[in-house]
Write a protein that binds this DNA or RNA. Structure first.
Lengths: 156, 156
DNA sequence: TTAGATTGGTTGCGATCGCAACTATATGCC
DNA sequence: GGCATATAGTTGCGATCGCAACCAATCTAA
């Protein structure tokens, strides 16, 4: 007599990852949405550019794995808000070079400490060794799926 | 001279969780979308109900943390496809009791082994001890955020 | 040089989502 | 009983997203 295969959704890792990510994002959103009027794609562009990086929309899309239309619209909105300068590339007339404006850098400087504090709070439920083990697994999964990691050579 | 606070998005855990979850979902979607015409919310309802459970939309919403409108529309679609029966509750006339139809149970039986195999493949990049440590951290994070876990008493 | 293919980025469009408002039933209080 | 409040679920609506199509610039090769 063969046991029927069952699945408990609450034990299913892809579901759990989605739900966790969604919950974490939800709680994080009040700092970039409520306080600064930014949505996730815009916050990702700001964080990718950082205080001084100048790069193409293509770079942001590859690095964050966002669809290029999502990057395009988020960059348009950031430019509209005056947080981002969009310049032409001398090397390639198709490219759009993105860079934070002075106002954008001020937003970045205000946002980053809050974001890092939230990350600290999130991970505070884990002992240091547990956190390290979790992050180790996370990194392995990322690598296994071909996701860009901070040690990787710059995309493009 | 104070060092300015910086943030590498690729090291930022909330971003990494979102990106990983999105990538895993993307790769999983071909089994429930391409093969069965189901989207994530519908698949979650099917998986929550399982072969024999009968429960309310409210239960599904709390258990999966989906918005009640998302559950409502996904349930309507499943009923339209003939995978789900929606009945009235004798105890409370407002409730809608959800249960898989025979066709729904056949879809469940076909989907579950594929889903479990995908989960196995996903985790195959980790040694058993690494996988255990990762899942331990995941469970701790879930508990810390108040997310329902499989050992918890049934919601409602 | 010039036609075709490729690439970076934007836009049109249909689909999904979450919020707010709504309907209908149930409950509490007098 | 009867009115106010709360709850389960649905629906209208505006916003976001990804795909496909498109535009413009670059590259390739005859």
């Amino acid at each position: 007599m063969r046991k029927p295969v069952e699945l408990q959704l609450l034990d299913f890792v892809p579901f759990r990852l989605n739900r966790l990510a969604s919950e974490v994002s939800q709680r994080l959103s009040d700092i970039y949405r409520d306080r600064f009027g930014l949505e996730i794609p815009e916050w990702r562009i700001v964080a990718t550019l950082g205080p001084d990086r100048r790069c193409t929309a293509q770079y942001v899309a590859e690095s964050t794995r966002m669809h290029k239309t999502r990057v395009s619209r988020a960059a348009a909105r950031l430019a509209e808000l005056g947080l981002l300068q969009r310049g032409s590339s001398a090397a390639d007339g198709r490219e759009v070079l993105l860079r934070l404006s002075a106002k954008g850098r001020r937003v970045y400087a205000a946002l980053v400490p809050l974001a890092l504090e939230r990350q600290r709070l999130l991970m505070a439920c884990l002992e240091p060794a547990e956190a390290a083990a979790f992050l180790h697994g996370l990194a392995r999964l990322e690598r296994s799926l071909g996701l860009p990691q901070s040690g990787d050579p710059a995309p493009g």
